[in-house]
Design a protein around this nucleic acid. Structure first.
Lengths: 167, 167
DNA sequence: ACTGAAATCTCCATTGT
DNA sequence: ACAATGGAGATTTCAGT
């Protein structure tokens, strides 16, 4: 018997989504509060399978979060700055310490490890230029092991979506 | 009579949020499906005012969207590329045409007008390097009026949140 | 796996303070 | 402007196919 090919033996579950799952995701990405019934009607299924598919995608981590998107300009967080950072040292320990501080700073809403001359790219949101100056001087630049920092200011938002189109 | 200072005369509504509104936003940002009752319990209010405050924030545009956040690595959209673009011409008409195309390309999930040597920064999500190459050559570079394009590849996601911390 | 219906819980308008 | 109440509608579970 070929045990390897039996599904029951795989410990790590493969997540395979079909077209109905993608259709559900498409609707939920537009509005996380879309009701199960509404989704069921639109994709021509009853509520039970829709409900089960959503629960499965939540459990498998395909659905990470139901988030509320706030208009930053209306809550005194209207200034977006893209911030490039390089470290002086690149040891594993230095990197871990840097990441710890990044996660503690609330102004930083995104941080990526990137290719090129800089090590990280940060997306920073704050009230205005004064607040950014304070962040830059007192928070970012005072992190130990910080090398160069370069700020690119966002003047306008052209497009911003979470909608991934599949297929 | 000093009409200017009368609130009734202002056509554009000032959105003033108090601490309870921020507390509601804080909970909703973590989970857009948090029930009104649950929020009411946590901030020590009944459901009626919580419901009214949420509706008010929806109507005033403070709450832009209830979005479902999908794990891109699990839906074959695991490659993130930050893409810098400069235009050849900077006339208003040329800009408008560019923005139109940007909105039509599903791989581009964010686009900002930025300071510095480039005109725009794009966040692009696709399946793999082959898909990105196709996007770059056949979609992005074939837009008329495109000048320089520079790609920065995201190697790792350190932090990614929608949670803005107020105050 | 999907359907249909029943049970539980949430929303939301009304009423009263 | 907030609390309490009850009908409408949603989620979720369970039987059946």
């Amino acid at each position: 018997m070929n045990k390897v090919n039996k599904k029951e033996d795989t410990t790590i579950q493969e997540i395979l989504l079909d077209e109905k799952d993608y259709a559900i995701l498409h609707l939920l990405q537009q509005n996380a509060r879309t009701t199960v019934k509404e989704i069921a009607d639109k994709i021509h299924l009853s509520t039970t399978p829709v409900h089960e598919r959503i629960k499965r995608m939540e459990a498998s981590g395909v659905i990470k979060q139901y988030a509320t998107i706030v208009d930053n300009t209306k809550v005194k967080k209207g200034l977006m700055v893209i911030c490039y950072v390089s470290l002086k040292q690149h040891s594993k320990n230095a990197g871990v310490k840097f990441i710890k501080v990044i996660n503690e700073l609330n102004e930083i809403i995104e941080c990526y490890s990137i290719s090129g001359e800089f090590d990280f790219m940060l997306k920073v949101m704050c009230e205005d230029m004064n607040a950014y100056y304070d962040f830059h001087v007192n928070k970012l630049s005072s992190i130990e092991n910080i090398g160069h920092v370069q700020s690119v200011f966002v003047m306008g938002v052209i497009k911003q979506t979470h909608q991934l189109v599949y297929g």
